[in-house]
Amino acid sequence: MKELPTIQELQSFIVYNKTGNFTLAAQQLNITQSAFSAQMKKLERVVGVKLIDRSTRGSSLTLEGERFLPEAERIMESLERSVHAIRLASKLERPVLNIGILRSMGDIRLNQYVSYFSEDSGDFALNIYDMEEEEVLLDLRESRIDIALLYLPNDKDMSMYTSTSVREDVMVYYAPRLIKNRKRVSRQEAIDNNLVMYPPKYFMARALKTYFEGFDIKRSNHNRLSNPYAMINYCQQNDAGAIVSKRLLDVMGVHDGYAELEQPLNLQVCFAYRKSNSKWDTMKRFMDHVVEEAPKQFSR
């Protein structure tokens, strides 16, 4: 039988692709650079083709390396899934789902699901992380989280993930000290007041920039806060308004002090994930429950 690549060699090759650098890959794998280089040379010898171009200016995957990479990833993912499945079946470990939620969406809305699965499905646990878009997509790509909960569509490449629609978030104008018995507020009225905004790199900052396109928003007149909870609290204490999700206000028990937007702003909430994840069965249970419950919660 012909010699085959080792698991360590395949893993090292995948790490190299993520870092694009021998030194960084070796550091991440906690081995010396010479040991890493030896692994890559042996992998190329076993496969029979050159996988990495090396020069004084750096290194990069060859065409053959780019073709081999998805196969190496598939093999490692399949092995990880198989080991994870047998450990779960033997009750050697309890699966833990790591879920990243867009910070501007508000992670408190997942509390009820954490509670539900803790009480009714104690065979797995949940870790919830609040992140912004770049961070959540990076951690999803690097498999540090299993599921991302975010707004779509966005301007990011999502081709490597599967997405499932959860619900639509209706955004409202929250300003308890500024509006009295108002049912609707125009875009001009919203920006004429002290409108609390999101930091520039946030998804919601881009969404609001598009929403207010053509209107003059003087940045110096508008504070930027890190999350919707801080915005809601700020508006409760100051003569200011913010664009936030009505669903988030409902979950927080805030049922007044806001008005509909004359020009509606509705955002689609979606799960993004990879089906190849070794925790797929557990992931599906969680997502199916959330999608099933979303219409009921939205109607309350």
Rank of each mutant, 00 (worst) to 15 (best):
K18W: 11
T23L: 11
R103C: 06
R67C: 02
P228Q: 13
K296P: 02
S118K: 11
N194M: 11
G58R: 04
L79K: 12
G48W: 07
L51P: 08
T164M: 15
V136W: 03
Y202M: 12
H84Q: 00
R274K: 04
V196W: 04
M231I: 12
C270H: 15
I52C: 10
Y116C: 02
K156L: 08
R57T: 04
K183P: 07
G100M: 09
M204Y: 15
P264S: 10
N17M: 01
E262P: 06
I101D: 11
R300F: 09
S163D: 09
D130K: 06
E132V: 03
R57W: 05
R274G: 00
D139C: 06
K218C: 07
D130V: 13
S115D: 12
T164R: 12
T62A: 10
L140Y: 01
G257Y: 10
E73R: 04
S245C: 10
T62M: 13
L126N: 06
I191S: 11
A148R: 03
L225P: 08
Y202S: 15
G100P: 10
R109N: 03
K218Y: 10
V136D: 10
N266D: 14
I14N: 12
I179N: 11
G65Q: 05
V166I: 15
E73V: 05
A26F: 08
R219T: 01
I232P: 12
R103L: 13
C270W: 03
V291D: 09
Y129G: 04
S59E: 09
M1I: 12
N223Q: 14
A72K: 01
D139Q: 13
A38V: 06
R45F: 03
M160A: 09
V254R: 09
K201V: 05
E93K: 03
R247I: 09
Y198R: 11
S60G: 07
R81A: 15
M231V: 08
R94F: 03
L149P: 01
A230L: 13
R206H: 15
T62F: 13
E134F: 04
H255E: 01
N194Y: 00
D169V: 00
T6V: 08
V49L: 07
S121V: 11
I52S: 05
T162P: 08
V244R: 06
L79S: 10
W280N: 02
G106P: 08
M76D: 05
N30T: 05
W280E: 01
E44D: 11
D146I: 02
I147Y: 03
K50L: 14
N223K: 15
S59K: 02
F22H: 06
L138E: 11
I7L: 07
K42W: 00
L29F: 03
L267M: 15
G58W: 04
K2Q: 14
T32M: 01
